[in-house]
Simulated assay, not measured.
Amino acid sequence: MLRCLAALALLLAPVWGSTALAHQQKFTITTIAHNPRTGMIEIMHQVPVHDAEHSLVVQRTGNPNTHSPDIIGSEESREAFARYVTRRFLFQLGDAIITPDYVGSEITGGSLWVYQEVAAPAEGELRLRVNSQIFTDVWARQENRVNLGGGTNVSTFIFHGGDAPQTGLLPR
């Protein structure tokens, strides 16, 4: 009987292990779009909440009043993570490296959204150079996608740890 239980445990161990790790997606999506009504370039980072909380544990930050960060229940933890996102995202407009203004964050479903914006030049092309290194300091297999534009006019860049910035034109 003991051998049967041990054999069953060995057979089910990979299933249990993959279920436990299934929550970590190791994937973020950033969308950058020009808003002609406001004249702003809007940057929206979509991050799985579970990954955000896990990264705060790894980085030993979050709400100091609890042992583990709670992005959903703690505005302090959410803002700590939003600051992390803005530090790990490089944004260059033309020849100038710019730190976009932080607008805020919110949780929708299982995603944390972090919003930034910067004023677009009134004229000329919007040549951007970007690099998303969100979570690459936490997980070696992290993948970050950055979409320039919206609708059917989108260019997508994919970044992994240590990748160089990429350049593209943002449609007006």
Rank of each mutant, 00 (worst) to 15 (best):
E53H: 02
A6V: 15
R87N: 09
I107Q: 08
L11N: 01
P100V: 12
I72W: 00
G161Q: 12
H34F: 15
G109T: 05
E143G: 00
L112A: 06
V85S: 02
A7C: 07
E123K: 14
G17F: 04
G162Y: 08
D51L: 07
G73S: 04
A96M: 08
G150N: 15
A119P: 03
T152S: 14
G109D: 10
N131D: 04
A82M: 04
A13M: 08
R141V: 10
F89P: 04
G104W: 00
R172F: 00
P48W: 07
H54M: 03
S111I: 07
F159Q: 14
R83C: 07
Y84Q: 06
R87T: 13
D137G: 02
T66R: 11
P48F: 07
H23M: 04
G104A: 09
P171K: 11
L112K: 09
V130I: 11
A20Y: 11
R172C: 00
W16P: 00
H34D: 07
P69K: 11
G168F: 05
W113R: 14
E75C: 03
V15H: 08
C4I: 12
P100L: 14
Q46K: 09
V114G: 01
T31A: 13
L128F: 08
Q25C: 00
F157A: 10
T156G: 01
E76M: 13
L21S: 12
A140V: 10
N144V: 07
W113N: 11
I97F: 00
M40H: 14
Y115A: 11
P48Q: 05
V114E: 02
G39A: 05
R127M: 14
Q142L: 10
F159L: 11
Q46I: 06
E106L: 07
P165W: 12
E117W: 00
G94I: 09
P48A: 14
A6Y: 02
D70R: 13
F91D: 05
A164C: 01
D163C: 02
V57I: 15
Q166M: 13
G162W: 08
D70L: 10
G39F: 00
G149L: 06
I158A: 12
V58I: 14
T38V: 02
A33E: 10
S132E: 13
I134E: 05
A164H: 11
E125T: 11
H50K: 06
E76I: 14
G39Q: 07
I98K: 02
P121W: 12
I134L: 15
F81G: 10
